[in-house]
């Protein structure tokens, strides 16, 4: 039986992750809209990558793989915010689970930010990758590990949802919008 020791060079693995941190942190920030949450998610992703380091084949594959884990970590965080049952999530991190406090945190955000935050996690992810990271649809598909057609559909649906959400935000906060206009 193989010993527990790592199958790849630890130092090379760490440097590979370190080299991807800027990009990972930007993507995480775009998706989560929150610098502190993004840094947590990146560290979370690094830990997940550490757990799966035996699966690494080469540096290129590892970089793409780490990128996907970052997105997954962010999506988990979004799911925690939006869909965790109140009882258990509140015990862990009330400031995440409580929508009212979440709203309070972002009260000073503009309506686009609020609108995006209301979208379902998959939509937030795809919008961040398209309009934040400026990835093409094929690149998004690769990053998410989904077929290109699915990515295209998801992006289109996300845009439509964002449009509705932004309109709703405007309708619900006329004073803010008019003050800014």
């Amino acid at each position: 039986m193989e010993p527990t020791q790592l199958g790849i060079d630890e130092a090379a693995f760490v440097e590979l992750i370190i080299g991807r941190l800027d990009e990972a942190n930007r993507v995480a920030t775009w998706i989560l809209g929150d610098a502190a949450a993004a840094e947590d998610a990146v560290q979370d992703a690094a830990a997940r990558a550490w757990a799966g380091r035996d699966g690494l084949r080469d540096a290129d594959a590892a970089a793409a793989w780490f990128g996907r884990i970052v997105v997954n970590a962010c999506r988990d965080e979004l799911r925690r915010r939006s869909s965790r049952p109140r009882t258990s999530a509140a015990a862990l991190a009330p400031e995440i689970a409580d929508p009212s406090s979440r709203d309070g945190e972002t009260a000073d955000r503009d309506e686009v930010g609020r609108a995006v935050a209301r979208l379902k996690p998959d939509f937030q992810v795809v919008l961040a990758l398209r309009f934040g990271a400026d990835l093409t649809v094929p690149a998004i598909a690769e990053r998410l590990g989904i077929p290109e057609g699915t990515a295209k559909t998801r992006l289109r649906d996300a845009l439509a949802a964002a449009r509705v959400a932004i309109a709703a935000e405007r309708a619900s906060t006329p004073t803010t919008r008019e003050a800014r206009a």
Binding site: R26, T29, W30, V112, F131, G132, I166
Partner: peptide, 15 residues
């Protein structure tokens, strides 16, 4: 709007 939103968010280099 989305592009501006994400541009505003861009953290640049990670701390």
């Amino acid at each position: 709007l989305l592009r501006r939103h994400y541009r505003d968010l861009d953290p640049g280099t990670a701390p």
